[in-house]
Design a protein around this nucleic acid. Structure first.
Lengths: 118, 118
DNA sequence: CGGCATCCACATGGATACTG
DNA sequence: CAGTATCCATGTGGATGCCG
């Protein structure tokens, strides 16, 4: 498939320096890709707006997921001091750069959704 | 982002009919994308050959992963009756169709691996 | 060679209720 | 509005050892 000069002997490792595993730790969580997709297509959002759009998620899990996405530098959180106050969730540049990955996932899923078995 | 006629109100649901979640259940497991990548680039393989290439995986986890991939129709398993017998793992057409998804994950990971923080 | 059996640890996700 | 606090069920991965 590849000639000897550029061949990788190890496809991926258990450690973090594997590109695929790196991406999988972001996109492999149950709700993460859905949330990123929502922020990509729907733009910035408040907490409950997000919760309403992402069908089936609970407050706690959305909160946990957003916290994880912030720690990983994919999502930015901004508190707007008003009454009542608002919170603004948006993608960072890094988060937005996941678009090709999310798009590929969405496309594959859409094509194979009609034939889940066989 | 989209006009009113083609807008999706719900980005994804907790149920199985969501395209992204569908893909995430395949590609979101820790070792699945790595195994598929190995089979895409390295061609069909025996069990231990696969285990050697996928650095860090245990027999049990590789076995579990391959079983799951078979159930989902992504991987084919063929037993070759020789002495000693061999087993042949390869991608099905459906498994091979994941190539764009895996490629997108690999590319994103490679680009962002050098800057894991910030 | 190509696994399976066991047992275990930890992470993820979910239900429910409550708060500033 | 935007979460937090508990508590709990399950899943996923890992270590070790044995088997046909």
């Amino acid at each position: 498939m590849s000639d000897s000069s550029e061949r990788l002997e190890v496809w991926c490792a258990g450690e973090e320096w594997c590109p695929i595993t790196t991406t999988a730790t972001l996109v492999g969580k149950k709700w993460h890709p859905v949330i990123v997709h929502r922020l990509l297509d729907g733009g910035p959002s408040g907490f409950n707006e997000l919760k309403d759009d992402v069908d089936g998620i609970s407050s706690k899990v959305l909160s946990d997921s957003l916290e994880d996405l912030q720690e990983k530098g994919l999502v930015a959180r901004e508190v707007i001091s008003e009454q009542p106050f608002r919170v603004h969730y948006s993608l960072t540049d890094r988060g937005a750069s996941l678009e090709p990955v999310i798009a590929a996932m969405a496309e594959w899923g859409a094509e194979h959704l009609r034939a889940p078995e066989q």
